[in-house]
């Protein structure tokens, strides 16, 4: 890895009781995808929610440690400004249920200062294109967002995240609620997106990690066990735990 876009240093977090993640040190390169894998409850979702300061919106949540974006600690900055630079796609599609397809994407701009009509139209169009959804929705942009299928809703959420023009895109098991065809579409999309963005994707699905990620990190019981190039993790894991997990012996 030749450069670092983002880095977690000594990151620990909890929901008030025991720690959910402990002392994570992990770097992310620009224009690449990093997968975070591990069994349920290993803290992988908590970890990426710390990377855009969403974790602290939960009751009794605590975070210690640092997260650097371009060398500056995001915990020293205004959280809303941080979240504009670091987009997020959630586990279940969560388009704004009361808004149209168009407004869902345009909402990203509304939270990011004023934009002219032309500018908004252009960014909405580009974002829907980038999320590979434009062709499917161009004739009913002003229909309610919930009229879309689950897979389309998730791509709408990706479009919405892209419209904010982030530098980093966090994806928390973005395909776990989708059928195989929608999953394939979203994976193709991630493959394209990682050329432009720093993509960090939490996934349950090891084949998915193998398909889309350049690097893979394995979490277990709130700790980072191993991180390496994806090929190495799956073919020559250094840790016994990693080997056990990727070979399907537990998880």
């Amino acid at each position: 890895m030749d450069a670092t876009k983002m880095a977690a240093v000594g990151l620990s977090a909890s929901y008030g009781r025991g720690p959910a993640i402990t002392d994570i040190n992990l770097e992310f390169g620009p224009n690449s995808a990093t997968a975070i894998i591990g069994p349920s409850g290993c803290g992988k979702s908590t970890f990426i929610r710390c990377l855009n300061r969403m974790h602290e919106t939960a009751p009794r949540a605590t975070v210690t440690g640092k997260v650097f974006l371009d060398g500056e600690d995001i915990y020293e900055q205004d959280p809303t400004a941080v979240r504009r630079r670091i987009g997020m796609v959630f586990q279940r599609p969560n388009p704004f249920a009361t808004m149209t397809i168009f407004d869902n994407v345009a909402a990203a701009l509304r939270f990011n200062g004023r934009h002219s009509r032309e500018e908004t139209d252009k960014i909405v169009y580009e974002s829907l294109q980038a999320a590979a959804l434009w062709e499917e929705v161009k004739d009913h942009l002003f229909a309610g967002a919930t009229s879309l299928s689950g897979g389309q809703q998730q791509r709408l959420c990706i479009a919405r995240a892209l419209a904010a023009q982030p530098e980093v895109l966090l994806m928390d098991e973005p395909c776990s609620a989708l059928d195989p065809i929608s999953t394939a579409k979203v994976e193709d999309l991630i493959f394209t997106l990682k050329r432009t963005y720093t993509v960090i994707i939490v996934t349950h699905n090891m084949q998915q990690a193998a398909r889309v990620a350049d690097r893979t990190a394995f979490f277990y019981l709130g700790k980072l066990i191993e991180v390496n190039d994806t090929k190495e993790i799956f073919e020559r894991p250094k840790e016994k735990l990693t080997e056990g997990y990727v070979s399907g012996r537990f998880g």
Partner: peptide, 26 residues
């Protein structure tokens, strides 16, 4: 649903913006 609110927060909305644009309409 909490994800409705989180969707707005994750886009850089302030607490008030998330309430006004995502929660109150719902």
């Amino acid at each position: 649903p909490i994800p409705q609110r989180e969707a707005a927060l994750a886009l850089g909305a302030t607490n008030w913006e998330a309430t006004r644009r995502a929660v109150l309409p719902y």
